[in-house]
Each structure stands twice: as C-alpha cells, then as structure tokens.
Design a protein around this nucleic acid. Structure first.
Lengths: 338, 338
DNA sequence: ATGAAAGCGCTAACAT
DNA sequence: ATGTTAGCGCTTTCAT
C-alpha cells in the first residue's frame, strides 16, 4: 500500500510547507496565485482528501450537524411529511458543505442512550430537532449544553429556543373559513397531536375561524387525532354520528383517513360532507376526490432550518431566532366549488 | 465558563493517569475493579463525554457509517419504502453504538461534489448504498478506495461488491403463480425500473412463472414502469386496452396506481381484474380493495445491511458477502379468494 | 495494573 | 506571502 497522503506530503510534492497547503484547501486569501495553482494541481493529481477527524480536532468544528427525530413510532413511516422535510434539510446541508448525521430514536431507552452522544464534544456543530413535543426534555439539555440548535415547530412559549415554523394558526383559519364560505353549517375537525404546537395551533385556528363569525363550536364535532391515518379513520366514523357537513383535518394523512371512512359509510364527498386537509403532499392530488388542502412549504422549512442553524453556529451566542412561514390554501374537489 | 473536561482532568480528579481513564472508557480489561469504579464515578459526576474528533484521529476510526441514497427524484418522497428501510438501518446503527450520516443526492452536480467527501479519510468507517443502479459508478469508486461497503439490492453480476437483497425472482414467481392459480388467463405486469436489479428480477420472475406453466407471454401485457404511482397509473390505462384479467405490479405504490386507473375506468377489482403488488407497506392494507402483495422484510434488510457492514469493517479485507432474504405472499382481497 | 510518551493530521498564531 | 511551531484530546505502544 502506497504511503498515506497528508498535508506534509502534498507540501513536499509542491515544494511548500504544510501550512500553505492548508491555506489553499481552506481558501485562505494569503496565498500567491502561482503557488495556489501549483498546490491545486498536486492535490488534483494525487486525489488528496484532508483527514476530517484531524480537521475537526484542530479547528474545533466538525462540519457535521445532527438531525434528531424523536420517537413517534408510526407516523414517520406513513406520512410523506418527513421524507419531504428530509429533502429540504439535505438540500440545505449539501449546499453549505456540511454533513448531516441522523438520529432516529425508536424507544425511550435508545433516546436516553443516544442523547449523551448527541451532546458529546467534537461530534456535532449543531442540531436540528424535527417536531418535538412542546416540552421535550431534550430541548432543555441542548440549552444547558449551549449546543447550537433549531427546532422545527414552535416549542413551549417559555423556552428560549430558536425555531422555524409555518403559520399554523392563520392557515387553519383560512381552511375553515373556506368551509364556511362554501355554505357548510356543521363543521367538525380532526385534530393533530395536542402535545405538539402544530396540533394545538391548527385547533385554535379552527375555533377562531368559527368564533369570529359568531358560530358556536359544538364540542362533539371536535375529535382528537394524532396525525395518523388509521386514528383519523376511527375518529371520522365517530364524528359521522354528529352529522357534520364539513371536516377540517389537521393533516393530509388524516384527511385521507376521513375520506376512507366517509367512503365506507357511503357518504358522498363533497356533496354530503366537505373535507379540507393540511400539508398538500402528493397523495392529496390523487385522492378521490382530489383534496382541498393547505400547502405547507415543507421543503423550504427544512432548508430554512439549516440556513438559520448555520447562522447561529457562525455567530456564536445570540438571541433565539424565530421564523414563521406562510401557508396557502389549495382548492381542489373535496369541498365542491364555491 | 468552567474548564473544558478532558481525559487529563478526569484523571486528576480520580488520581490516575489519562491512559487509565481511556482504558475505563473503552472497557479495556487491564484495570483493577476499584480503580475502574473510582473513575466511573468521576465520569458520572462530571458528565464527561470524550471528544469524538480526538478519538477518531487517534484510533483511526470515526464510529460513523454513511448511508448513501442516490438521486431518484420522486419515489423517495412518494413511496414509504425508504422510510421503512431507514427505520431498519437506524435500528442497526443505534444498537451497535455507531452514528449514521446521511447523504442524499439531489442532482448530478451535487453527487459529483459530495462523493469525494464520502471517500475522504477520517469521516466514515463504511457506507451503505441504498438501491443504486446496476452499474452505478459510485460502486467502482468505493471498491477503488477500499471503502468498506454494503449495497442494498444486487448490483451487476460482474461487480465484486457485498450486498443484501430480497429474493425478488422467487417472490415474483410466487405472486404471479397466485394469479394463475386463481384462474386468471391474461396476466400482465407493470415493471419497476429496469436499470435496477429489483426491477429486472421481478420481471424475470413474471416470465418464469408463466413460461414454466407453458403460458406464452404476450409482450403487449408488459408495461415498463419505474416504481412510481403516477407512471403506473398511465401504464395501467394503456394496459387496460389489452383486456388483462390479472396484473402483477412490481411495487405497492404501482399497484395503487393501477387500482386508481382501474377505478377510473370503472373496472371492478378483483372481479374483472386481479392485482398483486410487492412490498406490503402500510397503504396496502388500507387500499380499496385491500391489496394482495409480497411482503418484503424491509426493516430487517436495513438492519442486516448494517450488521454485515460492521462485520466487514471489523474484519478488514475479506471476500464480498452476499445475503438474500426470502419474501412472503400476503393474501388480501385484490385477487378474490382462491 | 498503571504511567509515560509518542503520535494521529490538521489549524492557527506567530514569526519572518 | 510563506514557514515554523504549538497544540487539539485522544489511543496505543512500551516501560515498569
């Protein structure tokens, strides 16, 4: 086996010191054009790649950010939300030259075992947390450890953490208002998990849309769900007994569950019951009938999360950053035409 | 800010040298029980975590394995196959104490830019490649670089690479035989991508099942797909003109596309046309009608890939390892009852 | 069983 | 603009 390449060796081959080679690699300005070119050529010819571990140690930065997906058994593998988010996050990471490490917790034990690793020095420059619960203890540990972080979805108000989120409240108002304007009188909702801000805020938007029009909410029309199709299916079967003529589901996956239930019950959509979802993921467009829904810029949220995290990493200690993106109503056939 | 913890500091606190602390952390046998206990306690009390970059550099192992998902625009974000695979892979990684880095390529440029990083020294101990094309150039580069690797899905025969795969050929025979036994006479297929072994092997199984029964395949009944729902939908619309009474779709996502097309055409399933899928992902069980399909042990494949890769990493140079897992036919309603 | 000491390959401060 | 040098925090011989 040929001798292992190092900065030192590359330096010899290009007749410069290893410091100069390092400067060339890191695009440091203080290198004359000809030397830079000479070194570049040697690197090219030899296929040299600097040792990442050594860089991390010397520079005290690993160039790796972590993505933490807390345990939530089913929905990750049912709902296309996460793959889409992952697309945005990897895009952001790739564009910036960072590397992404993925931490997917399956059980509580695993979570306890892995968190110290996430927090260990020299591994991660920062972390993105995807959809934690409102008071996820992990958030406190990150804050304690001064680990740069960004949360996707608003955490509990009292937590001084940085996050990006979509304007769930306003979007829900828009969605429910659409049902009202289309003439629906008994509008129900299937909520998301109420220990996550997305679930809570969308439910609040539902209340606000109705209350602001002087419509009294019938609590029997509110069914608590958890973002999963199958649970929404059951919830819809129960809701149907209350004879709703409109349903706001807090996610597309749940809207599809509701459609399936309505279909099994022989209720026609949108003639008898209108349905609005939330997300606008691919299945919304191929559902029967096609689903009117709120489009979240999921991919953009992922990218923005990474961009914001990198800013935080660069700037060191700084006040928490909060970014809220708007969502948009996409009108299809599940509500009929206005 | 309090002084940064290092092996040296922990050593002082426990009145031992840093070498001993290192031994305790790495479970080296040559440490007396009382010293081990004393050091353990100090580590516990201080919450010390060894610096990963320093470990990687000194030990010449990073404890990180990479997961590479080659670019394939849509299907990653439509088909629950990948999330499920990811679940298995993260399980395997978590159990072994390794960390996972994710490389998701979006464009060819990005791929070119990122591959050197994947191959760079000191970052990854090995890589898992998810569903590459048969002759993905990345595979050659991994082999050239002696990077320990495992491929999910069989690569081209001539490549001396390690892989895990499901027995696609046999499974396809089982699926198509089921259609034959249920009395179908004109059995068509919607294939997967034919530049991947999964696509090819399932198609070969289709031919074999029919040929071995002396049934001549009508080439008009073979529609080339690419594992995507929408493409399968169009393919089914075309196939329908040939009046098939049975369809073997090479993935569940495609089977759902076929069902949607048949529904739009007003063809009843299974009465007029029987459909069999491949994967047995959650949507198969909630489809209308519920989908008869081949169950792949997707999660297990992910775990096995990691386990095998770690063996390869431990043992250094070794002949390629190949592991083939069986699949199982799950009978539901889309074929009627036998 | 424990300690001393030599690196691992790089960055960055300092010197020229 | 370039070179010299001192670490970064750990693992791993090699002594004892």
């Amino acid at each position: 086996m040929t001798e292992r390449l190092t900065l030192e060796i590359i330096g010899e081959l290009a007749s410069v010191s290893r410091a100069t080679v390092s400067r060339v690699i890191n695009d440091h300005p203080n290198v004359s054009p000809d030397v830079r070119e000479r070194v570049r050529r040697v690197i090219e010819e030899t296929g040299f790649q600097p040792n990442q571990a050594a860089r991390s140690l010397a520079a005290n930065r690993s160039g790796i950010i972590g993505l933490i997906i807390p345990r939530m058994v089913q929905s990750l593998f049912t709902d296309p939300y996460y793959p889409r988010l992952l697309q945005g996050i990897t895009k952001g990471v790739n564009d910036s030259g960072y590397t992404l490490s993925l931490f997917l917790f399956h059980t509580e034990d695993e979570e306890d075992k892995l968190i110290p690793k996430v927090l260990s020095r020299g591994l991660l420059d920062g972390v993105v947390i995807a959809s934690s619960h409102l008071d996820d203890p992990l958030i406190w540990r990150l804050l304690d450890n001064q680990m740069p972080h960004i949360i996707i979805g608003r955490p509990q108000e009292s937590i001084e953490a940085s996050y990006v989120d979509v304007d769930n409240f306003s979007a829900a108002i828009t969605a429910v208002s659409h049902l009202v304007r289309s003439g629906r009188k008994r509008i129900g909702t299937i909520t998301g998990r109420l220990d996550m801000s997305a679930g809570i805020d969308r439910l609040q938007g539902y209340y606000e849309a109705l209350n602001s029009r002087g419509i009294k909410v019938d609590e029997k029309l509110v069914a608590v769900g958890d973002f999963e199709e199958s649970v929404a299916y059951s919830a819809m079967l129960r809701l149907a007994e209350q004879n709703p003529d409109g349903i706001f589901a807090a996610s597309d996956a749940m809207a599809l569950g509701a459609l399936r239930a309505l279909n099994d019950l022989g209720k026609r959509v949108p003639d008898e019951v209108a349905v609005v979802g939330f997300d606008d993921l691919p299945p919304a467009a191929t559902a029967t009938p096609t689903l009117t829904t709120v489009r979240q810029p999921i991919k953009r949220i992922g990218e923005l999360a990474v961009e914001t995290l990198l800013e935080i990493i660069e700037e060191g200690v700084s006040p928490p950053r909060r970014r809220i993106l708007p969502a948009e109503l996409i009108i299809r056939k599940s509500c009929g035409f206005i």
